[in-house]
Design a protein around this nucleic acid. Structure first.
Lengths: 331, 331
DNA sequence: AAAAACAATCAAAACGTTTTTACAACTTTT
DNA sequence: AAAAGTTGTAAAAACGTTTTGATTGTTTTT
């Protein structure tokens, strides 16, 4: 049925030349006479010869593969990132090897270990729970770019401004009871963004309520859990979420509890995934600059791969609020 | 900064033993004396030695990697599949290498070529546009399981029954003008499902209208395009879509054209992705048996990997219609 | 006390490439 | 017509492992 794959010596033998000649014909690094070259290619087709990837990788110590480690694809934000990354890497003839770790830490470490044995030339870490230092440690000798949603790369994502924009928008629409459902690493209380919140509240005479902050995990379910926590505590008229996915969870919660969006509950998300425009009512959300971030991530990785110095200076990327229909004016 | 990775001979030299001894200590295939073994492990930690993946793969002709080729992750159906696949493969200590091809054929072929050079031990083809025969051809000596949404695997997905169920449901709710937005390979006119449609229509005295069938590509956009085609032709009161993603496109179209779902337009999807329950109104859709299919796909691949005969017999999987709120009774 | 068995380690071959050096057989130069 | 250069190909070494057979000592058997 399936036969053993042909090797370069098989085709060399069949043609009656040495393996090196076949290799040269293939790579074009030496000139091989017309007739011989032709016969080689013919035989290659005949035997369906394909150079063994690992032998090549071993010899060249280069694979053309980039490991991308990510929790799960079902999160549309992550999916968008992955798709973008694949396209961007393709420009450098690199292919992504996506490692799905699920939500557990042990598997993440295992994935890094696997990548770091030379399986890939470099890795991109999309795991919010793995710090840049951990990633470096785990990757050993191979370069890694990490935490691309943060400002560790030469791009500045101004979450503080965004936080203020959102709070101002909510405030201007009359909202005073605002819940936050955060991504694991974003909008957390120790974060500079938390300072922005507290400052804003202080300025406007609103009491800060720690129970109105829930740390989610980017899943729909955690959006629902967040709402449950808030409502068990006290009434909120508005919620903002660290990503759209969790905002969808809020939508779901609202549907199940028969509360109407936006009349009874206003929602703001973050990411602007395609579904945000599709959902009803269309979700007001902040645009996450995927393409720019993807570009910069890859640029940074390329620099590391080529052992170039990382270009200094930071680029500030806007995250404009896209006003749709999920926030009501209740003032 | 980053130094060259240590090899097995580096640690052998440091310990003062031969490389084979280190290898044996690591694999445990030969017994190595206590003190020597200890010193070896200590040195390994010290030098941060990690066995070169490629060298191992070359020697063992085994990688533990499975290639999965897929168009894009942004499609929630695909994402669900990938997440499931990763978890299922993990049970066999296999890791997926996901190849994103985008929507173009050339890249798909390139991806298969790359995989087929021995990069992975086997491949799973999720591309609807690549037939099983093409996939076999492209993969050469390495085993491939393809087209898992169809019935080529030992599982029977009864699309004909599903088609009939949907048509009957629409009919019972008074719909006579029904549009179809199909997935590339599903519900197509040459398909057995087309026969079901025509038969159903004939039985109920409805004229079959070819312009009410649009072949989409599983994207939100193609759902919108489908609606544009229908409406440019004549009015429809109901639409069913080959996947939920395209149904979301219909929602979006409806929102933009101010037609209300379900009052003015009924919609049925297929897949039952999480967002289907979240969207408003919640989408009536058919459950695609992801977990079962994923399980069977991996089972089939394992059989091929171990050169076992594929277990005969087919298992019939239900695809029940999940009635939510996107279909109105207009009778 | 010699023979046999065992324990622990080493040396060499192999996996399938690529690359470098070497070497023929022709051409061209002087 | 000898020296020098070209051209096409072969042989060998290397990449980092694993595995097999060989080789030491040391211990047990007879």
């Amino acid at each position: 049925m399936r036969k053993k794959a042909a090797t370069i010596v098989d085709v060399a033998k069949a043609v009656g030349v040495s393996p090196s000649t076949v290799s040269h014909a293939l790579s074009g690094k030496r000139v091989i006479s017309g007739p011989v070259k032709e016969k080689i290619f013919e035989t290659i087709r005949e035997l369906d010869y394909r150079p063994a990837f690992y032998a090549q990788a071993l010899k060249n110590s280069f694979t053309g593969l980039i490991g991308v480690v990510v929790n799960e694809c079902r999160n549309p934000g992550a999916a968008l990132f992955l798709d973008g990354l694949a396209a961007e890497l393709e420009k450098f003839s690199l292919k992504p090897v996506i490692g799905l770790t699920g939500l557990n830490h042990a598997m993440a470490a295992e994935m890094f270990r696997r990548f770091s044995t030379g399986l890939v030339d470099g890795v991109i870490n999309l795991l919010p729970q793995i710090t840049p230092e951990e990633a470096e440690e785990l990757c050993g000798a191979i370069p890694v770019v990490t935490n691309i949603r943060e400002s560790s790369i030469p791009v500045l994502l101004d979450y503080q401004k965004l936080t203020r924009d959102i709070l101002e928008y909510f405030y201007s629409m009359g909202h005073r009871d605002i819940g936050y459902i955060t991504s694991p690493t974003r909008f957390v209380l120790e974060d500079p963004t938390a300072a922005v919140m507290k400052k804003f509240y202080a300025e406007h005479g609103i009491a800060f309520d720690g129970k109105l902050v829930y740390t989610g995990d980017d899943s729909i379910e955690s959006g629902i859990r967040g709402m449950d926590q808030f409502v068990g505590h006290r009434r909120v008229t508005a919620v903002f979420c660290g990503n759209d996915q969790m905002a969808f969870g809020v939508y779901r919660w609202a549907f199940e509890h028969k509360v109407r969006i936006p009349e009874e509950l206003s929602v703001i998300g973050f990411d602007n995934v395609p579904q945000a425009a599709t959902i009803i009512p269309p979700l007001t959300t902040a645009r996450f600059p995927y393409v720019e971030i993807v570009e910069h991530t890859v640029k940074l990785l390329m620099a590391k791969l080529e052992k170039r110095q990382v270009p200094p200076g930071k680029m500030i990327l806007e995250m404009p609020l896209i006003i749709r229909h999920s926030v009501a004016d209740i003032s």
